[in-house]
């Protein structure tokens, strides 16, 4: 059973009587422990897909199952709970709370899952250790470099031990070298058994992931654009992972 199952999912916006299909009849499965990227030009609907996958938004039509739970039926409160326990987010602009220090930022999700103060501290320290930031606990986000801030954000995403980690352009605001460190971090997480989904339009990043899902005009493209997926840049030998060219057909 796949971790995420999307069946005929559509997201329709109405703008002044005009119907805009940001997602159009998307059917998609993502399994446990997969490391995949969602690619596509801007305006293609990849952000919408990520919002729906990440339970930030609910679809207009279709069904989604996350870890066996029907998402489209869940109330906003249940969605918040699912985001809290099963999903970790990493954003392009880090989205740390500037008034809180590093540890407090990492503790934030646990506050909403009702974990006691002492355990919060222990788990936050552990998560920060995983991203190798144990030496900057008391700093404010503004006192950290971009790479460090993104690592704090990753620690925050990890701290509730979620099954899925979403990253929306995680390296978009970082230089190449720092970006590579962050990507290596994601790869490690994926190897540890977590499902990691990267949303990007950067071919170099897409090239790193074994599976690439391309969105074009709200639909999943049958054939991944090689240029967009960064496949042309890879030496043949390095393209170890088979490019996934079609959505996995759900096993009924």
């Amino acid at each position: 059973m796949a971790l995420l199952e999307l069946r005929n999912v559509s997201k329709i916006y109405h703008l002044g009587g005009e119907e805009i299909r940001a997602l159009d009849d998307v059917t998609l499965d993502i399994g446990i422990g997969e490391f995949c990227s969602i690619i596509g030009p801007s305006g293609s609907g990849k952000s919408t897909l990520m919002h729906i996958l990440g339970c930030l938004d609910s679809p207009s039509k279709g069904t989604i199952k996350l870890d066996g739970t029907e998402i489209q039926k869940a109330s906003t409160r249940e969605l918040a709970g699912i985001r809290n326990r099963k999903i970790g987010f990493v954003f392009q602009f880090f989205n740390l709370l500037p008034k809180l220090n590093v540890v407090q930022n990492v503790e934030l999700p646990m506050i909403y899952s009702g974990i006691g103060g002492r355990e919060r501290r222990v788990r936050a320290l552990k998560a920060l250790e995983q991203v190798e930031l144990s030496n900057r606990l008391k700093n404010r986000p503004s006192q950290l470099s971009g790479g460090q801030q993104q690592r704090v954000a990753i620690a925050r995403a990890l701290v509730n031990d979620p099954k899925i980690i979403f990253a929306d352009e995680p390296t978009g605001n970082l230089d190449t070298h720092t970006g590579e460190i962050i990507l290596a971090l994601f790869r490690r997480l994926s190897q540890e058994g977590r499902t990691v989904i990267l949303v990007t339009h950067n071919p170099e990043i897409a090239a790193v992931t074994p599976r690439r899902i391309e969105i074009r005009n709200g639909k999943i493209a049958d054939k991944v654009d090689a240029k967009l997926a960064g496949l042309d840049r890879l030496p043949k030998a390095a393209g170890s992972a088979e490019p996934v060219t079609a959505p996995v057909v759900p096993s009924a």
Binding site: G81, F89, N95
Partner: peptide, 14 residues
């Protein structure tokens, strides 16, 4: 800030 809090799992009630 409210958006971030909600994204990491704060419900409307929180």
């Amino acid at each position: 800030e409210i958006g971030i809090r909600k994204a990491v799992g704060a419900g409307g009630l929180d």
